[in-house]
């Protein structure tokens, strides 16, 4: 329960005015020879108490309401299930190669095919999640917006069957994926699942933009790096002066500086891809505990309503008061 407070406590100094209706005498009254001759009437006595009491209630309620009472917001703990997952899938030409770095020839599964089959299962399993998909090569394509519609995502995934072309523009894909979180309520963990087989060089401005975007959307990043035999490892520090030859390593080090939860999985074969995805599924399925602080609630309107009701009743009493003893 939140604490109770007043935004303008000095208004409470008006509170003693509420005694006025109880103490003041001398309202206009009809002269009557002797009250001894009047019978004791319970209803009339109640009326007397009522109109004095209502006056006191109206004044005190107004004073309290003007003091601006509020209840500080309590913070509630909430548990989130499921995640908002944007799959950012690389469709560059290199994805057509198999893990050996060769152009895949029928029986050998290309990296794209491996990623696709594993992603299909992943999408099938993630019942509680919202899913979306962005594919990118030279420029990104919004395949399926973030929604509970799994069929759209699967259809987009199947469309990658056509094969990849072009380069790897990671930054644009990530930016589009992050954009799809914008304006949506945070009801679960936000995850960008980047599936790509290589890195790209990002310039300083793009890095800053991406970092800001990650922070704004507070999205976690999982990178499934489909490494073929030609690609360098993410953990292997390149030789001095040879950094530009390993863009994936640069990307990895950049991702680590993002300040959002980030994990990279190196997958060198289809089994590794599937293991990495299973890992991701487990991670993002962890229940998300978070505290939500409610804003403090202004309760002054209760005072005003009470005062208005009391004044209304007093007005009715005033209207029903006898102004003249005899009608003639």
């Amino acid at each position: 329960m939140g604490a109770f407070g007043f935004s303008q406590p000095w208004m409470l100094l008006l509170l003693p005015l509420a005694l006025l209706p109880l103490l003041l005498r001398g309202q206009p009254a009809f002269a009557y020879p002797s009250l001894q001759r009047l019978p004791v009437d319970g209803l009339s006595r109640w009326l007397e108490h009522a109109w004095r009491g209502l006056g006191a209630i109206a004044i005190s309620a107004l004073a309290v309401a003007m003091a601006g009472p509020y209840i500080t917001g309590k913070s509630t703990e909430q548990v989130g299930h499921g995640a908002h997952i944007m799959v950012v899938l690389d469709r560059s030409a290199s994805m057509n190669d198999d893990f050996a770095g060769q152009r895949s020839e029928g029986d050998k599964a290309s990296k794209m095919a491996a990623a696709r089959s594993v992603l299909e299962r992943f999408i099938d399993r993630s019942r509680q999640d919202l899913l979306g998909m962005v594919t990118f090569n030279t420029s990104p394509i919004m395949v399926a917006p973030l929604s509970g519609d799994r069929e759209a995502a699967l259809a987009g995934l199947r469309a990658t069957d056509a094969g990849g072309v072009g380069f790897t523009a990671v930054a644009k894909g990530l930016a589009m994926g992050l954009d799809s979180f914008r304006g949506k309520p945070v009801t679960g963990a936000r995850v960008i699942l980047l599936v790509s087989d290589g890195g790209a060089h990002l310039d300083g401005k793009t890095r800053d933009l991406l970092r800001a975007s990650f922070h704004r959307q507070s999205a976690a990043l999982y990178w499934i790096y489909l490494r073929d035999s030609n690609g360098g490892s993410l953990e292997q520090v390149p030789e001095e002066g040879n950094e530009d030859a390993y863009p994936e390593y640069q990307l990895h080090t950049y991702f680590k500086t993002l300040g959002v939860p980030y994990r990279a999985y190196e997958a060198e074969n289809p089994q590794a891809v599937s293991a990495a995805l299973a890992d991701v599924a487990r991670l993002k399925n962890l229940p998300v505990h978070y505290r939500v602080a409610e804003p403090r609630r202004d309760v002054a309107h209760y005072g005003y309503v009470l005062a208005a009701l009391a004044v209304l009743v007093l007005l009715l009493l005033h209207l029903s008061e006898v102004k003249q003893w005899r009608t003639t």
Binding site: P33, S34, W325, T327
Partner: peptide
């Protein structure tokens, strides 16, 4: 008075 309410003051 038929209906309504009023205050009366004892004259003594």
């Amino acid at each position: 008075p038929q209906w309504g309410w009023g205050r009366v003051r004892d004259m003594e």
